[in-house]
Design a protein around this nucleic acid. Structure first.
Length: 346
DNA sequence: AAAACGGGGAG
DNA sequence: CTCCCAGTTTT
């Protein structure tokens, strides 16, 4: 039996029962693929259920406010996925009369849909012969064929895509694509793969060479920058606070947060009022303050380590409009902020 | 070609 | 701690 046959059979026996495997509806497949990008099934599954339930059709999603879409996405990360999902829903609704694109080429025109996602949807929903290459596929192919080309190099991306395309079961591209991914996710795992009982063990190059643990090869190490985030949690006598939307490029775009002062170093409690950035921010405002967490909360992102302090600023009245404290929980926020809101008891 | 983009889970 | 996750977009 060949690679293709073995994997397809393995899949028919071992596949997990996932909700998006009950349908070929491209809208639902699209939702599942966007949600699962760079996300483990366990983490993304409840979000898929929420989105299908709240937005049964592309029209429901298109007619929603972005703020509501981001609120449902809260906690999942990579928020550009939610913004692009919403923008693409509006495009499908308005420009395509609500009809989801039926080809790989047309799907690539959707924001947030790249080669992987277009291949996945077109093969699963429309039986188009496009091979998916995700993290699982890179791992399975590099090991089985003993390919040391770095998977995140230009040459590697090209080489693995070509190989995956040659291996594709063109009669059944959707199931085959899912078979390789499922095999990589649950059998040919990054750590401690089940090589002893692997249906491909007799022909796996990496296993025979004893280099399973060294593949796939990945280059580039990301450099992490550290930042000090000082959030100003205003509380007025009429129980209002200030909540702002992040409109700039960078992390958490379009999500909400308390007014933020970034500082080069941690601001000690004693020198808060006299800190240059704080002085500049408050100017002449009369306030009293305390710090919610004397030790910074460490919030780790892939490219940044944030050291956050929440400063409670009590004032008689706000200088800006502000919102009732009871409403902050209705806004989409980063996990760092929602954790604080829960802990503080807003 | 490289960097940016979240948050959680596994070992 | 490091690495990885049903990747895409921007620089």
């Amino acid at each position: 039996m060949d690679f293709n046959k073995i994997l397809t059979h393995w899949y028919s026996v071992n596949k997990r029962d996932l909700p998006w495997r009950q349908t070929k509806n491209p809208y639902h497949i699209w939702l599942s693929e966007i949600i699962m990008q760079q996300t483990q099934i366990k983490q993304g599954l409840p979000y898929y259920e929420t989105f299908v339930s709240n937005y049964p059709s592309v029209f429901h999603l298109a007619n929603a406010d972005e703020q509501d879409v981001l609120k449902l996405w809260q906690g999942l990360g990579y928020y550009s996925r939610a913004r692009n999902l919403h923008a693409s829903a509006k495009y499908i609704s308005n420009e395509l009369n609500g009809e989801f694109p039926t080809s790989y080429q047309e799907m690539l025109k959707l924001k947030g849909v790249g080669d992987y996602t277009a291949s996945a949807i077109s093969s699963i929903s429309f039986d188009e012969a496009h091979a998916v290459v995700d993290g699982n596929v890179y791992r399975v192919l590099s090991r089985y064929f003993g390919i040391p080309t770095p998977i995140n190099s230009t040459a590697g991306i090209k080489e693995f895509k070509l190989l995956a395309t040659q291996l594709l079961d063109t009669k059944n591209p959707g199931d085959y694509n899912q078979a390789v991914m499922e095999f990589g996710a649950t059998q040919c795992k990054p750590k401690n793969p089940y090589c002893i009982v692997c249906p491909l063990k007799d022909s796996c190059v990496a296993l025979q060479k004893g280099i399973v643990g060294e593949l796939p090869v990945k280059i580039k190490k990301i450099k992490v920058t550290k930042k000090q985030f000082n959030f100003l949690v205003f509380i007025s006598e009429d129980k209002k606070t200030v909540f702002e939307q992040r409109t700039s490029k960078g992390i958490w775009q379009n999500l909400y947060q308390f007014p933020l002062i970034e500082s080069e170093t941690e601001i000690p409690l004693k020198s808060f009022k006299s800190h240059p950035s704080v002085l500049d921010y408050f100017k002449t405002l009369d306030y009293s303050f305390s710090v919610f967490n004397p030790k910074p909360i460490v919030h780790k992102l892939s490219h940044q380590h944030l050291y956050a302090k929440f400063w409670i600023i009590e004032v008689k009245r706000l200088e800006t409009e502000g919102i009732p404290i009871s409403e902050v929980k209705n806004y989409p926020t980063p996990v760092l902020i929602s954790n604080f809101i829960d802990a503080f008891g807003f």
